[in-house]
Every structure is written in structure tokens, then in C-alpha cells.
Amino acid sequence: MTEALAAGVARTIQTKLVLPPDTNHLGTIFGGTVLAYIDEIAAITAMRHSGEAVVTASIDTVNFLSSAKVGDIFILEGVVISTGRTSMEVYVKAECQQIETGMTNLTTTAILTMVAVDSNGKPIPVKGVIPETDAEKKLFRSAQERKQRRMQLNQYSKELC
């Protein structure tokens, strides 16, 4: 049986300052910048969980709920929510904190699939995960449904080519 780690073991938190080059003409953070931050924290979280290099296999969902502005503190949190044989699903939550008020708003959520790879880029097995919080348990229970949806979309994409 594969060893399992508590989800909190690979929880990663990253904080960034939203600067003018990160923003569009409205002074709000570029969606592409947010996506790059999300991919980075998901990779770090998955590497911490697996102890291996990882690659991004998919970004299942990204929900832009509100925006961060120049001067906001951008806080990202990633946690491994489920695992397959070589893959890990990572849930990422991004919030912004306004410096003047201290208020924090949820800006973005995402679920990514990361795959552990060896030095030749070949997938390698990963440890299981034990969800800790109620939210992690709910995401863990729905992992198989997301995997099925990913497989269907992959097949559909191949048929289009």
C-alpha cells in the first residue's frame, strides 16, 4: 500500500505585492499573471508533497471571482487534495488584502493536476493524501468525478484533431 500524507503537510502559502507591471489599463491584475502565480504555487505544493519534480497536466477550473488592484497584497494558498498513481490534484485559493483597510477578498480558485516525473520526464508514483479540513474532504470525495471529466475532455480533444 502507498504511504499517505496529511494534506496540510504539502500546504503552501505565497504572498506577493501587486505592482503596476502586473496590471492592465484598469489597474487590476492581469488574469495571465494570476494564472502564472497559480501554476507556480501548484507546482511547489505538488513538489513538496511528492519530493519530486512535477509538470502541469491540466488546469481543470479557474474561477475569477474578484480582482486585485495595484498595492494589494496577493495571497495564494495551495494544497494537494487528491492523488492518483503519479498525479496530484492541487486546489489553489487566491485572496487579495487591501493594505489600508486590512480587508481580505477571495479573488480566484483553481484546481490543477500535476504529475511527478523522474529525471527523464517519465511519470513516477506519488504518496496518497489524507484530507484534513471539511473543504479538503469534500474536494477529495469529488476527485473521481473530476478525473472522469478530464478523461472525457482529453478524448474529445483528440477526436477534434
Rank of each mutant, 00 (worst) to 15 (best):
A4L: 11
A4S: 15
A4R: 14
A4G: 08
G8F: 04
Q14S: 13
T28A: 06
I29S: 06
G32Q: 03
G32P: 03
A36D: 10
A36W: 01
A36C: 07
Y37D: 03
D39V: 12
I41Q: 05
I41Y: 07
A42P: 08
A43G: 15
R48L: 10
H49A: 05
A53Q: 11
V54M: 04
V55D: 09
T56W: 08
S58T: 10
S58G: 05
I59S: 03
V62E: 05
F64N: 03
F74R: 00
I75W: 03
G78V: 11
G78R: 02
G78S: 12
V80C: 09
V80F: 05
I81K: 03
T83M: 04
G84P: 04
R85G: 07
T86R: 02
S87T: 08
S87L: 02
E89M: 00
V90K: 01
K93C: 10
E100R: 14
T101A: 09
T104H: 10
L106E: 11
T107L: 02
T108K: 03
T108R: 00
T109P: 03
A110I: 00
I111F: 03
L112Y: 05
T113Y: 02
T113R: 05
M114N: 02
V115C: 07
A116Y: 02
D118Q: 08
K122M: 11
P123M: 05
V126K: 09
G128I: 11
I130C: 06
K137H: 14
K138R: 12
Q144K: 14
E145M: 08
R150A: 09
M151W: 09
L153E: 15
Y156K: 14
S157F: 12
K158E: 14
K158N: 09
L160E: 15
C161D: 11
